[in-house]
């Protein structure tokens, strides 16, 4: 192949790519969300007016994501980026820097912080340092697990999408309302099914579920991790098991797919409790229904564990 034909081929690839980009942009907004639950909520608001891509997959721990150039490719042509905003996805800063996309840098119209207006829990009141583990100085960032906060989160997403595509605002508002109505319809059922779980003591592996537990009036009595992000020491586990053995109320031990399942199961067994694996992120399915399905799955898992049904 001659140098001239190589040059022509490269030009054709670039031109084709640019034309494809222009065509797609006219049809749909390209939105990237850092974590799957934000992607699901963005699809709930954007519907068929957006294509949503996600940086952290459903099975990945969003605390420890490796920054790969492929993430920058996703962000390179995005019209908007939805971020957690409370440092859960701090790695997104490096992805933004590598993506060379002026439209999604902090401060740009396409940079959407989903946490604005969220009543943040676990905000450290005093001095914070790393002796406390991998603590989030701005508060617990796992607010998307609380379906009751979906109204605030989707409002932030709506405002962000409308900044990028103002003409679509009525459509986004209509779709958001429809999603919230479906969520409102499901909420009484979830409350009723989790009512018996209010008698249980819940131990979580990592302090992820504080918003979810509070929403449904459930009681967290401890964490397997000694401190956030620090694997538990044998002394901490022995102390925790000793504390939990004395209780007369049922005990549920909640872990996530990427936690040490064997350790969680052993703790549940020794303390006389039951292990429940909850998935904090919507999985394979997409859209607002995926968010509802994820909440539904977690509610069902807890209710089933309380009934002592086989999982």
């Amino acid at each position: 192949m001659t140098r001239r034909s190589l040059g022509a081929l490269l030009a054709a690839v670039l031109l084709g790519s640019a034309l494809t980009t222009a065509g797609e942009a006219a049809a749909r907004l390209r939105v990237v969300a850092t974590i799957p639950d934000l992607a699901a909520l963005t699809e709930a608001v954007g519907g068929d007016r957006v294509t949503v891509d996600v940086l952290a997959r459903a099975g990945q721990n969003p605390h420890d994501l490796e920054i790969r150039p492929s993430l920058m490719v996703k962000l390179r042509r995005a019209d908007a980026l939805v971020v957690n905003g409370l440092d859960l996805d701090q790695w997104a800063d490096a992805v933004i820097r590598g993506a060379s996309n002026a439209g999604v840098v902090p401060g740009a119209p396409g940079h959407i912080d989903a946490s604005r207006g969220v009543p943040v829990l676990d905000v450290p009141a005093g001095r914070v340092d790393r002796s406390m583990g991998d603590v989030h100085p701005r508060g617990n960032p796992h607010y998307t697990l609380d379906p009751g906060l979906a109204a605030v989160v989707t409002q932030n997403i709506l405002e962000g999408l409308a900044r990028v595509a103002p003409a679509e605002r009525p459509v986004f508002e209509r779709q958001r309302q429809a999603f919230l109505e479906r969520l409102d319809g499901a909420m009484p059922g979830w409350q009723a099914r989790l009512a018996p779980v209010r008698d249980a003591r819940i131990v979580v592996y990592h302090n992820n579920f504080v918003y979810f537990l509070r929403r449904f009036g459930l009681t967290q009595v401890g964490t397997i991790e000694d401190r956030p992000g620090i694997p538990p020491s044998p002394a901490h586990l022995a102390r925790l098991i000793g504390t939990l053995r004395d209780g007369r109320r049922p005990l549920l031990v909640v872990a996530e797919p990427w936690n040490d399942q064997r350790l969680a199961a052993r703790l549940a067994e020794e303390a006389g409790g039951r292990l429940v694996v909850l998935n904090p992120k919507p999985g394979a399915s997409r859209g607002g229904d995926a968010y509802l399905a994820a909440v539904e799955a977690n509610v069902e898992a807890l209710a089933r564990a309380m009934r002592r049904d086989p999982s």
Binding site: G107, A108, R116, G117, A151, V152, Q155, N156, R163
Partner: peptide, 25 residues
């Protein structure tokens, strides 16, 4: 809050600054 947001008619007053993302840069 949800009922107020969903209410038809004249455009609702903007929510408090703390709950509303900034306008377009």
């Amino acid at each position: 809050l949800r009922r107020l947001e969903a209410a038809p008619g004249p455009p609702a007053a903007p929510p408090p600054a703390a709950q509303r993302p900034p306008e377009a840069a």
